[in-house]
Design a protein around this nucleic acid. Structure first.
Lengths: 396, 396
DNA sequence: CCGGGAATCTGAATCGTTTCAGATAACTGG
DNA sequence: CCAGTTATCTGAAACGATTCAGATTCCCGG
């Protein structure tokens, strides 16, 4: 009724996706006006705006292309989460899931979405490509080996970056371009959030020592990327690349050093952080070191496997074998697992807030969150008897 | 030594982020050449390419901007996953995590990354914004209420889309623009992957009926978005918006209809899919319907809560109370939970492959995967005695 | 010495927006 | 009726790349 004009120019806009320009042309207005109809309603009359939106709908135009908009505006509304293992591992780990959940929540408040950036398992493709090619406003590194190419690639992007459970490297060491170029001070854009990994580990080991255990098995998380697991040689221990693993190990050793001199640690490395790997490691470890009466596990997930192994070996927990985990997952209380609690959700929130601060141009201070020992039913005093765990039934 | 020229034009490129153009200018070559140095090494001499890359490094240029590249190329390398609840829920649900993991894996093979698109819990912000504003090559809908705005927004983007556990709506009903505009045939870009939800549910209910149970409680997943939980009225049941919930309910009812006429179902709806909600619901349900001897749970997570509740009430499972779950999570075997297995990982893989096919211009057929009943130790015949579960101790 | 083909490199259009700096028109009060 | 606002709308320059269609140069056999 009201609109008199409709199709002044009859230039065939052809097929394909409709653009702002075509809407503008169809109405005989400028593209700026159409853009304004979407982004700044106050810049045009309500009537015209209505007509624009109507025409857009009729033409099947779904609004400004997000990509072009991002390019022009300089912001994408996306934060990348870097994970240096195949992504399915991330989801398989409840602690990671919990962390990501709370991270996502705190970022969502600022309308930011998470882009999952994982190293492909496939050795064909370049593991750095995702990080280098991602359109993001910021990066969060959830786990990367110290001094790794991946970490370097992240910092090279000079984006706001938050490092989780990992120290922020000093400039020179990590960005050592042989040609002395300063390569931007990435430190100004980078912040760190960590937990007291070593402290928690120390408490755990101390607990076992206090209970009188002298032969303690340690189920380690991966020491470095893609290696394979198994007994840990001193040499391998020296090369530990993952910071949390290194710290927890350090904590264990510190407690040991402070305890009675006869106590010994038997290290084994899980190939992956899964219950079945924990189970496998436990079986192997107990087989080769039958005097072990307690297990320090670097995650509740591994501990769960240890419990399973103990069960299948007929070793009662905690009477014959004490088991202690790390993380304190939601399900661990049900298992009566003694473990080291860490504020996983709060960590996610802190990381989110640090990112928000960085995006806002501030430089938030590094955060360090506490850990705590939660004693439940999976630990007890070292069995009094002559400790003959020997002659294990071979696993079925 | 070799390079003779270095800085012909001395126009100050000023500060900020370095661009392709500035690298080109510094070298005195065209931008096309610099671009080719990165994207088509065969288009320039190795020597020049080396010089280009060197200069780029010196200047601190980190390679072509992903955003601009995506705009020009028309591909982003990102697939959006739409989840119509706050994201922290997604991560809290092991089944979702499992699914996402395998999905991510299958997409990673094609160098595609996952962008998590969740409805913000905050009612302030537009829940459609993430979907409308995401720069993606395709969308995967993990859970959305039927006929919802969200689903409409997804389809309106006319991108390759895969609907998970949800029927693909027919054109007209969902895209009914009042002005008869056809609005693109989105069906050609949309594919579906589902499981036999109803079938699995039927088996579960049948199992309980076969065991002689006549008063069966049902712990439902959310029937619709943001509601609140509690006993399910017939009216509410009619409005169930989530497809899996509807289907499972249908399966339960079908088995019931085929069984002895005295059997009754007592429905209650969990507010969220968490163990503690399952526990809460179970307590409430048993309180109000003490004759219940068996529980059908729509997820293993809820079942886990049910087990916890039973434990705290002193009801032994399965002697006094049978519990049956849905999903068959990795941890459920440990709990001896009888449950309905679904191929969660395969589902993720199928969804990934369907997306790949769509991106490749094909139209993959809809997929429907089977479910199976896994009988473990949490179900048994209905207790013979006069079933006096009455006089429950009030929860502490 | 010449025509033709390969090897290199460049100009300019394009991707689809946003936004700044006006231009035009309409209204205000004096 | 005019200067000064205010309300609307537009032109054109970014944003940072990719890519197609040449333009040059070089090399080679004839």
């Amino acid at each position: 009724m009201s609109s008199r004009s409709a199709s002044p120019s009859s230039a065939p806009p052809s097929s394909g996706r409709i653009t702002l320009r075509e809407v503008a042309r169809a109405l005989g207005v400028s593209v700026a006006t159409v853009s304004n109809a979407y982004n700044r309603p106050d810049q045009l009359s309500a009537a015209l705006r209505e007509r624009v939106l109507d025409t857009a709908r009729t033409l099947g135009y779904g609004g400004p292309d997000p990509l072009a908009r991002s390019l022009r505006r300089g912001r994408t509304g996306v934060i990348g989460v870097v994970y240096d293992a195949p992504l399915e591992y991330a989801f398989a780990d409840p602690a990671a899931a919990l962390f990501l959940g709370s991270l996502a929540q705190s970022l969502q408040a600022a309308s930011l979405n998470l882009l999952l950036l994982a190293s492909p398992g496939d050795p064909q493709t370049d593991p750095l490509a995702p990080v280098q090619g991602a359109s993001v406003d910021g990066l969060i590194v959830y786990s990367a080996a110290q001094d790794s190419e991946l970490l370097r690639a992240v910092l090279a992007r000079s984006l706001p970056t938050v490092l989780v459970d990992q120290p922020v490297p000093v400039d020179q060491s990590v960005l050592g371009d042989q040609n002395g170029q300063p390569a931007q001070d990435h430190r100004a854009q980078t912040s760190g959030v960590q937990i007291d990994d070593a402290g928690g580990a120390r408490l755990a080991a101390q607990h076992l020592i206090d209970l009188g255990h002298t032969h303690i098995g340690v189920l380690c998380l991966e020491l470095g990327p893609r290696q394979g697991g198994g007994p840990v040689t001193p040499e391998r221990e020296r090369q530990v690349a993952y910071h949390p693993t290194a710290e927890r190990l350090r904590g264990y050793r510190e407690a040991l050093a402070a305890g009675p001199s006869g106590t010994r640690l038997f290290l084994t490395e899980a190939e992956r952080n899964t219950p079945s790997d924990g189970e496998r490691c436990t079986l192997a470890l107990l087989q080769s070191e039958p005097e072990i009466t307690a297990l320090l596990c670097m995650s509740d997930v591994l501990a769960q496997g240890a419990l399973r192994a103990a069960h299948s070996l007929g070793l009662s927990v905690p009477q014959r074998l004490s088991v202690i985990g790390y993380d304190d997952l939601p399900g661990s209380a049900d298992l009566k697992l003694t473990t080291v609690w860490q504020p996983t959700s709060e960590k996610g929130q802190q990381v989110g807030e640090a990112m928000l601060a960085l995006l806002g141009g501030q430089i938030p201070p590094d955060v360090r969150l506490p850990t705590r020992l939660v004693v439940r039913g999976s630990t007890a005093a070292r069995p009094k008897t002559g400790v003959q765990v020997n002659r294990l039934p071979s696993p079925p």
